[in-house]
């Protein structure tokens, strides 16, 4: 077991453990702090996957902005540890959980049937075989090559920005408009509840 393996297992444990502690913690503030641990773990996994820009974005947007917003609301509403007990699992939620876990297990078994060992990418002549010995999925790569996709994965921000501004120009505009709509919606929501009902 080499260095990157240990790093993967460490950060996987960090993100999963943070998530589990978040779900089962009594106080909302500690839940938010565990959530930050989990998000930083996921950001480190993005670094392991060579997606450096997304890792920085994850830390800035999620751990920075979103969780600060959560903490702000927790303190604004003064939510105590009360009601931290899990709700009674009703029959329907139990059934829903059972069905989804079953589907998940089926999917996992289907995915990892005899595919957990590193594939020797000898069939396709991929040039980066040496640097990503285990981390290649020949079937997907062949399909990508067959479709003539010009957006090749690259860790650089330049390639990311090019893809964002060339191929995904319209979705980028729509995302900007969505943020504007969310901003206007939040302003209207917070104004209406104080103005018309008199507190």
């Amino acid at each position: 077991m080499s260095g990157p393996d240990l790093l993967f297992y460490f950060f996987a444990t960090l993100s999963l453990g943070g998530g589990l502690l978040m779900v089962f913690s009594r106080h909302p503030v500690s839940a938010a702090l565990f959530m930050i641990v989990s998000l930083v773990g996921v950001a480190s996994l993005f670094v392991l996957l060579d997606a450096f820009f997304l890792a920085i974005l994850q830390v800035l947007v999620y751990a920075g902005a979103v969780m600060v917003l959560f903490l702000f609301i927790i303190m604004l509403l003064d939510v105590g540890p009360g009601g931290a007990k899990a709700s009674r699992l009703k029959f329907l939620s139990g059934l829903a959980g059972l069905i989804s876990v079953g589907l998940l297990v089926v999917l996992l078994l289907d995915l990892s049937l005899g595919a957990m060992e590193p594939s020797d990418c000898s069939a396709d002549g991929c040039s980066d075989c040496s640097e990503t010995s285990a981390f290649a999925w020949p079937e997907i790569r062949e399909e990508t090559a067959a479709n003539g996709n010009s957006l090749v994965f690259s860790p650089s921000v330049k390639a990311f920005g090019f893809g964002l501004l060339a191929k995904y120009m319209l979705p980028l505009q729509v995302a900007g408009f969505l943020l504007l709509a969310a901003m206007v919606g939040v302003i209207i929501l917070s104004r209406k509840s104080t103005g018309e009902e008199g507190g």
Partner: peptide, 17 residues
């Protein structure tokens, strides 16, 4: 991101954005 990395295709990363 894992699929994007494994498939050498940037579309998945942009979708994460």
């Amino acid at each position: 991101v894992a699929f994007s990395r494994a498939g050498a295709n940037l579309d998945g990363s942009i979708f994460v954005f």
